[in-house]
Design a protein around this nucleic acid. Structure first.
Length: 935
DNA sequence: TGACACACGC
DNA sequence: GACGTACGTGTGTCAT
């Protein structure tokens, strides 16, 4: 296949320059080569990875163009080009020539116009066309088969967008609307304003409603207040902005197919250039590992751009190009063009009929419609059911809660039928919702969200996106029913029933269909066991925990809050006195200005990327010696955080119906397999500092006849590393039940455990920690505040002492490179798309994930299994003890006092034996009147 | 309203 | 030799 790449030269250079300008790279002769290096790297990425057959780089000429009606602005823009960027330009041209890539200069047109026109022409001739250009401007081109290529940026792998992705990104229906949005918003060309007061969001909404800038202007009388005023006053400007955003697709430029054919790079041109610019690594990428610049250092580079003969052999680099992107132009199916039977079951008779049908099924798919997204705080609006593709029912539920309950109760035989499997999307929500209406869902579960999470944890699992990706079906959007999210968003209850019927029935229908797509996929990725034995059963456990909630002691918190308030006020006053001025200490911006401009605490203060001074904890700590004001500021911050995030926020989360806080565990966000907790987040309650820990006193048992029991795995991740790697030294340390960090330190520093100093233990602990979280030597040095070299030395010693761990790491990485994924003990997969990336940053990220995912993920598997087994046993023995919280390696229970001694061994045994290991698993268990005492 | 800086847990 | 370095949730500030 012919594959044409069109690059906007100036855009690339600018982009490369600004990406690298934070740490400009100077050669020994003083030339800042950051832009050249960035450009060359991107070029190499394109060539090596995408293997185009044809290519061209397009440069703007310095003449006014059709699009730049405002030439003064254009000139200013050009003149503002930084000096070093201007210097880089000739070198970039040399690079391009060295690679034998044709250059096209735009004569009176923008580079984008040339690219656009060429792209269209090439497309007609059967090319697959890619346009490399900054994100926004090219959107309209994708209206056909042309793809937008975005080079790798810091921390991001390169990205290729087709029409589908662009529409999704812009949240619109038609690609042409991008131009109108840009026109209105004014973000098309630097400094050319659109219509004042209209940002991205407003522009999108208005364009969606009216279709184009012109339409909005002619309907301006329908707008209100300031917006109307602005649209009327700045109509001209809006139109101009749109014009500037529009790419011309018919400029007079010929597609010279032969001339654009790509051929091998010229060694004669590139070698001396790379030598001059001291591009060792880039040279190696192009010419292989024996490339060296040392012996050519003295070779002067031809200054005449066109004087050097171009390499004669025009042997193309063409390789078979596999087109991995399937044709995404196919119009998505939707409710209007796919046959379906969606019934409304709004009478007793119809419901009876429906229930009869449902009771005959082996599995049913259901969904609930509610007034909100928090199952603990909202009400049921309706139920929907599906039993075969294209056929679904919607059962409205009245607002009167007693009537609602009785209708839900009619369906009890279905929901509570153990032999009828239940399918849903994020079914925990629905189970929880029904619990509040007195229904205990039973039977095997199949959650499409969890299925997709297990299949590919790193991606998104929302129903809409799954539907579009796997069924090529675009569901009715929720915003079409209740409006865009925000404070004015409506409520499902206010939507007319016919619309809800379609929406709700469709949801159940889609979910049912997704199940049949995911079932074989689960088999394919060998994750059936994982989902059937862990994730699906866990849903019931989590639903019970969330429903149960935790009791909070208001009095403790109220008093603590008062205490904090006076302390904060005191600290505030001290800080003001020491600074000599009142300011908002909670504002990093103001704080930075006071510390570094008024008090001049550090003349070399670092700034953040937005130009503010950094005022993070480690920065402030390094200043502690210079002024005691920083101590007060740090204390202020700590107390303020405690007060606002925990002490004052927790009581507000208490559910008035139960007087308890009901967190929500998200089972499908953390790619490693861990859970996360929201509303409130119970997984980040303070513990490290004396005062912070106090918050845990407020987590109490339901009454005086109960106690809190807390059980946590000791060093679970390190034990898992030992288990997976079978490293003899580390296994021995655990078998001997040594303090693992001390044992590590003893090994690393070659001394006996009792000689280990606290600093050495701290270092060893940090290394252990770093391995668990996939840190690098840099991360370690930051963590410990030691030079990178020293950190690297410690790590080296560590690996020498624990060779099994080193072996595990390289084995895992090799496995990932070959298979593209890594696995936990229970077979949970994580796909690492970037593991073979040419970009070292991106690849490094994937490599750390490769090592980290099996460890963290196995620990997550283990505690999940323990939770399921404990839950089952508590139920089987009809105990009143309840599991209430999970904090990654800790489980918390609310237990009747007389059951404590009975329950403890159950917890202990199930946690220890969740996964069979050679390394001993240690569980620490405690009891108390509150969480702090129990922990 | 969204981006940012910061801080909490594991 | 530089890039930029665990994740997830929540808070307050500030510019729009």
């Amino acid at each position: 296949m012919k594959k044409l790449f069109l690059l906007d030269g100036m855009a690339l250079i600018y982009r490369a320059h600004f990406a690298l300008s934070k740490s400009p790279r100077f050669t020994s002769n003083g030339l800042n080569t950051s832009a050249v290096m960035g450009f060359t790297n991107t070029l190499l990425d394109v060539l090596k990875k995408e293997k185009p057959t044809h290519m061209a780089v397009v440069f703007d000429t310095d003449a006014p163009t059709e699009r730049h009606t405002d030439y003064e602005h254009y000139k200013a823009h050009r003149e503002a080009m930084p000096e070093d960027l201007a210097k880089a330009l000739p070198y970039v041209i040399k690079v391009i020539l060295g690679f034998n890539i044709p250059v096209i200069t735009s004569d009176g047109y923008e580079a984008d116009d040339i690219i656009g026109t060429l792209a269209k022409k090439a497309e007609k001739k059967g090319y697959q066309v890619y346009c490399m250009t900054p994100d926004k401007d090219f959107a309209q081109l994708v209206s056909e088969n042309i793809r937008i290529y975005k080079p790798a940026r810091m921390g991001n792998e390169m990205e290729i967008l087709g029409v589908k992705e662009v529409l999704e990104k812009w949240e619109i229906e038609r690609v042409e609307q991008v131009i109108d949005i840009l026109g209105l918003w004014g973000d098309a060309v630097d400094n050319i304003p659109g219509i004042p007061g209209i940002g991205e969001k407003t522009a999108k909404a208005l364009i969606k409603q009216y279709g184009s800038v012109e339409e909005i202007i002619s309907h301006s009388h329908e707008l209100k207040g300031k917006q109307r005023e602005n649209v009327e006053q700045f109509a001209e400007q809006g139109l101009l902005s749109k014009k500037l955003a529009t790419i011309l697709l018919d400029v007079p430029v010929e597609l010279d197919e032969e001339g654009l054919e790509i051929c091998a790079p010229s060694k004669g041109l590139l070698e001396p250039l790379f030598a001059e610019l001291e591009f060792r690594t880039l040279g190696k990428r192009v010419f292989g590992d024996d490339f060296s610049i040392t012996e050519m250092k003295s070779v002067s580079v031809q200054t005449d751009l066109f004087g050097e003969p171009v390499a004669t052999a025009r042997n193309t680099m063409t390789v078979d190009v596999e087109d991995i992107y399937e044709d995404n132009i196919i119009a998505a199916k939707n409710i209007d063009n796919v046959p379906h039977e969606y019934h409304l079951a709004d009478t007793l008779e119809k419901r009876v009929e429906l229930i009869d049908i449902l009771l005959q099924q082996q599995t049913i798919c259901f969904d609930t419609e509610t007034t909100g997204t928090d199952a603990n705080h909202c009400e049921l609006v309706g139920l929907s059911f599906a039993v075969k593709p294209g056929q679904a029912w919607y059962v409205p539920v009245p607002a009167n809660q007693d009537d609602a309950k009785s209708i839900v109760t009619e369906f009890k035989p279905v929901f509570e039928h153990k032999q009828i499997g239940k399918i849903g999307q994020n079914i925990k929500f629905d189970i929880l919702m029904l619990k509040w209406y007195g229904v205990e869902v039973q039977g095997d579960l199949f959650d499409t969200m969890m299925a997709h999470y297990v299949i590919d944890p790193d991606t998104r699992h929302g129903m809409d996106i799954l539907s579009e990706n796997y069924l090529n079906y675009k569901p009715v959007s929720i915003t079409a029913l209740i409006g865009p999210k925000g404070k004015n968003q409506g409520n499902m209850r206010d939507v007319e029933i016919e619309k809800i019927k379609d929406y709700a029935a469709e949801d159940a229908d889609i979910t049912l269909q997704l199940k049949s797509v995911f079932e074989p996929k689960l088999k394919q990725v060998e994750s059936e066991k994982l989902i059937n034995e862990i994730e699906h059963p866990l849903i019931y456990v989590l639903a019970d925990m969330e429903y149960e909630g935790v009791k909070i002691d208001h009095n403790t918190l109220r008093e603590f809050s008062k205490e904090l308030e006076t302390d904060i006020a005191k600290l505030e006053k001290t800080v003001y006195d020491k600074a000599g001025v009142r300011f908002n200490i909670a504002s990093p911006k103001q704080l930075g200005e006071i510390l570094f401009e008024k008090l001049m605490l550090d003349p070399k203060a670092k700034k953040t990327k937005t130009g503010q001074y950094q005022t993070g904890e480690d920065v402030l700590l390094s200043l502690a010696a210079k002024s005691d004001i920083v101590r007060d500021i740090l204390d202020f911050r700590q107390l303020q955080k405690l007060k606002s995030t925990y002490v004052d926020a927790l009581p507000q989360m208490v559910n008035p119906k139960t007087g308890r806080v009901h967190t929500s565990y998200n089972q499908a966000v953390a790619a490693t397999g861990r859970l996360s907790s929201v509303n409130p987040n119970l997984q980040n309650i303070p513990i490290r500092t004396e005062r912070g820990r106090e918050v845990r006193k407020a987590f109490i048992p339901r009454d005086s006849d109960h106690s809190i029991v807390s059980a946590d795995y000791s060093q679970i991740e390190l034990r898992i590393i030992a288990e997976i790697s079978k490293d003899a030294n580390m296994m021995q340390a655990f078998i001997n039940n040594l303090d693992i960090h001390t044992a590590t330190a003893a090994n690393v520093y070659g001394i006996s455990p009792d000689e280990v100093t606290s600093d050495q233990r701290r270092n060893a602990k940090a290394v252990n920690f770093g391995i668990i979280y996939g840190q690098s030597a840099f991360g370690l040095s930051q963590n410990l505040g030691i030079p990178r070299k020293e950190a690297a030395d410690i790590i080296e010693q560590y690996f020498a002492q624990f060779p099994g761990i080193k072996q595990y790491m390289s084995n895992t990485m090799n496995f990932a490179r070959e298979n593209g994924y890594v696995c936990t003990l229970m077979g949970r997969r994580r796909y690492l798309r970037d593991i073979n990336s040419a970009n070292a940053t991106v690849r490094g990220f994937a490599e750390r994930n490769a090592i980290n995912a099996p460890i963290q993920g196995s620990a997550a598997d283990m505690i999940k299994i323990a939770m399921i087994n404990i839950h089952r046993e508590l139920k089987a023995q009809k105990l009143d003890a309840r599991m209430t919280m999970q904090v990654h390696d800790e489980l918390v229970f609310d237990v009747p006092n007389h059951e404590i001694e009975l329950v403890k061994p159950i917890i202990m045994h199930n946690m220890k034996t969740a996964i069979k290991t050679e390394v001993p698993i240690l569980v620490e268990i405690g009891t108390g009147l509150n969480w702090l005492e129990a922990h």
